[in-house]
Amino acid sequence: MRSLEAELESARELAVDDLADAIESIGFECTRCGACCTGHGEDEHTATVFPDEVRRLEDADTAAVGSDGGEDDAVPDAADREWRDVARPMPYGLEEGDDGLEGETFEWALQTDDCGDCAFYAEDEAGVGACTAHEDRPLICRTYPFSVGLAGTSQPMGEAVDSVSLPARGGADGEGGDEVLRAHECEGLGRDISREDAEELARALKGRAVRELEEAIGVRDEYEPADPEPGEVVVYDSEGPKRIDGTPLEE
């Protein structure tokens, strides 16, 4: 298995044109169905968000999309918004204790509302979905339903339903050539996409692949077991261990 550093070098060498070609060959147009922003049954919406993205969303302006014509009330106004309004600990590895979730986990997920949907998701009177913080949405949201197949990069919303091999380019270690563009379940797949939109999506997808690997390396390098107390949650990200409110554990 190649190191995360080698995978990061491969991600940095991804060609936007090759990614755009692969995206065009599959095709995609967002139908605003909301499936990638909402929970499904007992499964809450779970999308990775990086620490810098959380901070950006804390200050983001949110659009009025709700059927009442007012501000979406799943998150407070930016002036009153805190870390926990934006992000929650990734649930994997946590257990239900006497006082709620406890234990250790890695990374953050976008916060959800009482229905298990992304807290920044809203629908208009016609039932058309929209992100209330669209201009500041995280990379995983900008690039869905696509991901790049590299060790250390995430695969959102289950297994891929389609994939396209990318041209072999190698890497700093002389290896590589196994990179693929993966497409995940979405009703917008197979639709025509303009070259301009494909290239914009490809640039975001490359940026996400690089960012995910940088984060994975940072988590690895900053990890120090914290041995949380009963009823306590510790989240490890690239900046070190944190409490659920985003403050460093040592403070």
Results as ranks from 00 to 15, higher is better:
Met90Thr: 14
Tyr92Pro: 06
Tyr92Lys: 15
Gly93Ile: 08
Gly93Val: 09
Gly93Lys: 07
Gly93Met: 09
Gly93Glu: 11
Glu95Ser: 15
Gly97Phe: 08
Gly97Asp: 13
Gly97Pro: 12
Asp99Cys: 04
Asp99Glu: 15
Gly100Leu: 03
Gly100Glu: 10
Leu101Phe: 13
Leu101His: 03
Leu101Gln: 13
Gly103Gln: 00
Gly103Phe: 05
Gly103Thr: 05
Glu104Ala: 02
Glu104Trp: 06
Thr105Ile: 05
Thr105Gln: 00
Thr105His: 08
Thr105Arg: 11
Glu107Gln: 14
Trp108Gly: 08
Leu110Ile: 06
Gln111Glu: 15
Asp113Pro: 05
Asp113Thr: 02
Asp114His: 04
Asp114Thr: 04
Asp114Arg: 12
Cys115Gln: 15
Cys115Ser: 15
Cys115Leu: 15
Gly116Ala: 05
Gly116Trp: 09
Gly116Asn: 07
Gly116Phe: 10
Gly116Ile: 08
Cys118Leu: 02
Ala119Lys: 10
Tyr121Asn: 09
Tyr121Gly: 00
Ala122His: 12
Glu123Tyr: 07
Glu123Trp: 01
Asp124Pro: 07
Asp124Glu: 05
Glu125Gly: 06
Glu125Arg: 12
Glu125Pro: 03
Glu125Phe: 08
Ala126Met: 00
Gly127Thr: 03
Gly127Val: 01
Gly127Met: 05
Gly129Glu: 02
Gly129Pro: 01
Ala130Gln: 10
Ala130Phe: 09
Cys131Met: 12
Cys131Phe: 06
Cys131Lys: 04
Thr132Ser: 09
Thr132Pro: 06
Ala133Cys: 09
His134Val: 11
His134Arg: 12
His134Leu: 14
Asp136Cys: 02
Asp136Val: 03
Asp136His: 07
Arg137Ala: 03
Arg137Ile: 01
Arg137Lys: 12
Pro138Gly: 08
Leu139Met: 03
Leu139Glu: 00
Leu139His: 06
Cys141Ile: 07
Arg142Tyr: 05
Arg142Cys: 11
Thr143Pro: 04
Thr143Lys: 04
Tyr144Asn: 09
Tyr144Gly: 01
Tyr144Pro: 13
Phe146Val: 08
Ser147Glu: 07
Val148Ala: 00
Gly149Ser: 15
Gly149Asn: 11
Leu150Lys: 10
Leu150Cys: 00
Ala151Pro: 04
Gly152Ser: 11
Gly152Ile: 15
Thr153Asn: 00
Ser154Glu: 14
Ser154His: 13
Ser154Trp: 12
